[in-house]
Design a binder for these strands. Structure first.
Lengths: 153, 153
DNA sequence: CGCCTTATTGATAATAATATTCAGTTGAGG
DNA sequence: CCTCAACTGAATATTATTATCAATAAGGCG
């Protein structure tokens, strides 16, 4: 089962140091932002940049991009393709919060849903091939009711 | 259940015309390329462009991009995030060929696997919300055995 | 069958997200 | 506390994808 730990500053530091990397104030701030995000919320790089700017904790866009990538590859964040043109990120929550996305390809309206079986199947598939699981997400591309009507699809 | 029809020129034309769109030689060629691609193969826009160039059936990159997008939104093609920086496309096959991807986030090595339950769950989720299903894919992000070793992850 | 409307194409330029470079800074181990 | 390499920020570069627009060609219709 996807074993995404709940990170504290200390455990983040430990995991970074183990690989020769460092805990920086910027990384701590970014992790905190995602941890405090209400469930179902996600941020693009620009969103995060703007949000931090507002909070007076400005972090450069370079660092934002670098950190988002790093944390995704560590399994701390999930990289989502919710709309055309840019990625969104959210914290990678363990079991009871883990969810998937139903996305309208026209208007990008997104609905979340949970599914234990999928998580199990994904975990098993990774295990079988000896892959170390980071994230497992079902993306359903579809047309929402509103767009079905307005575009006569 | 994801009901992706097997397209012929005629059925593609019918579906396009129904929406006021047109069947063009370029669209036919592109559909044919994807239909003849061995299972498990997928192409990026550039790949497709190069492949057609080779075959002497050059189609402009503009048209390639437009067509890939159009066919994805029609449910004819699936848009895959298999590597950083660009999308890949493959034909959207119905039931017995429908599959998912296990992807190494370091080297992009990808393994395909099938799962009926996932397709069922996805179909049901879309149905429940009144969404018209186009595609349904489980993406598993993980680190492959080779990269686990070489990077001491 | 041929006309007319309008979607489509191809070439080019524009956009925008993300990556890179590099000098200065700062974690972390010793 | 010292050293060194990882990290940051600012600016720049890259590159996938989109938009623009004149020329072309589907397809509905008489």
């Amino acid at each position: 089962m996807l074993n995404a730990p709940v990170y504290t500053s200390a455990s983040l530091k430990a995991e970074l140091n183990e690989k020769g990397w460092r805990l920086t104030p910027q990384r701590e701030v970014i992790l905190t932002v995602f941890q405090n995000l209400p469930e179902g919320q996600h941020l693009s790089a620009e969103d995060l940049y703007a949000l931090l700017e507002e909070q007076g904790e400005g972090i450069s866009l370079s660092t934002i991009y670098r950190t988002l990538k790093l944390m995704s590859r560590m399994g701390i964040l999930r990289e989502l393709e919710l709309a055309e043109g840019h990625k969104h990120y959210e914290i990678n929550q363990p079991h009871p919060h883990h969810h998937h996305h139903l996305i309208c390809v026209r208007c990008s309206k997104t609905i979340e849903f949970k599914s234990d079986p999928i998580l199990k199947i994904g975990t098993k598939a990774a295990q079988k091939e000896g892959y170390h699981l980071l994230d497992c997400q079902l993306s359903i591309h579809a047309v929402c009711p509103t767009c079905q009507r307005s575009l006569l699809v």
